[in-house]
Design a protein around this nucleic acid. Structure first.
Length: 115
DNA sequence: CGTATGACGAGCC
DNA sequence: AGGCTCGCCATAC
């Protein structure tokens, strides 16, 4: 039934699920908060592998609130203007986060402090 | 089981 | 600032 892989993905998804609306977190930040030995890249894998319909705590995992340490939406295989990136920018703006035309987000302003 | 890949990140030019 | 290398480690093949 549940095709959620074992291993670190589950812990990562639970951590991402805690990011409040209107806030963002970086891949490395999530990795550290999840207490993983594995690093930021594994968080990237977990986002890629995230099933669209997966919900935790009764609501979908806010994958769009995870960005890279440079405050940018990480490019997918189809580039920074690809479908996934545009979708992420749209979702962030919809919760009031300012995303520049080049896909930049002010981390000092929007970064989730983990509390 | 060895290699390649990647929604990363830190360090170095 | 921008680009490159390398470490990291879960998956794919």
């Amino acid at each position: 039934m549940n095709r959620t892989p074992a291993g670190p993905f589950r812990v990562i998804w639970r951590t991402v699920a805690r990011i409040p609306r209107g806030r963002v977190a970086t891949y490395g930040q999530i990795a550290r908060m999840a207490g993983l030995r594995s690093g930021a890249r594994t968080v990237g894998w977990a986002m890629r592998a995230l099933p669209d319909d997966l919900a935790i705590g009764g609501r979908p995992v806010p994958w769009h609130r995870v960005i890279n340490a440079q405050g940018m939406i990480s490019p997918r295989h189809d580039g920074p203007r690809g479908e996934g990136s545009l979708r992420q920018a749209g979702r962030l703006r919809r919760e009031g986060i300012v995303v520049s035309r080049s896909g930049r987000i002010d981390l000092a302003r929007y970064r989730w402090d983990g509390r």
